Amino acid sequence: MSKEKNGKEIVCTMISGRTLEQAKEMHSGKNSKSYSEAVGKVYVSPLLLNELGLAEGEKIVLKSSFGRAEARAYVDPGLPHFVVFIPMGPVANLLVGYETEGTGMPSFKGVQVEVCGAC
Rank of each mutant, 00 (worst) to 15 (best):
M1L: 10
M1E: 09
K5M: 09
K5H: 13
N6R: 14
G7Q: 08
G7A: 11
K8G: 06
K8C: 07
K8Q: 14
I10H: 02
M14Q: 06
I15G: 03
I15R: 07
R18H: 10
E21Y: 12
E21H: 08
E21R: 06
Q22S: 13
Q22L: 12
A23D: 04
A23L: 13
K24N: 01
E25K: 11
M26E: 14
H27E: 10
S28H: 14
G29W: 10
K30D: 01
K30W: 11
N31M: 09
S32H: 13
K33W: 08
K33D: 08
S36Y: 03
E37P: 01
V39C: 08
K41M: 14
K41W: 05
V42A: 09
V42L: 07
P46D: 05
P46N: 04
L47Q: 13
N50W: 10
N50G: 14
N50K: 15
E51P: 00
E51T: 13
E51R: 13
G53T: 10
G53H: 14
A55N: 15
A55L: 14
A55S: 15
E56A: 13
I60M: 06
V61H: 12
K63D: 02
S64I: 09
F66E: 13
R68D: 00
R68F: 14
E70H: 09
E70T: 13
E70G: 05
R72S: 14
A73K: 01
V75K: 09
D76N: 11
D76K: 03
L79A: 05
P80K: 12
H81S: 04
V84A: 08
V84F: 05
F85A: 07
I86V: 11
G89I: 11
P90C: 04
P90I: 12
P90N: 02
V91A: 00
A92C: 05
N93C: 04
N93Q: 03
L94F: 12
L94H: 04
G97T: 06
T100W: 00
T100Q: 00
E101Y: 12
E101K: 14
E101N: 14
T103I: 07
M105P: 01
M105Q: 08
S107A: 11
S107V: 07
K109M: 11
K109Q: 11
K109H: 10
V111F: 03
Q112P: 03
V113H: 03
G117E: 08
A118R: 04
A118F: 09
C119R: 07
C119Y: 03
C119V: 10
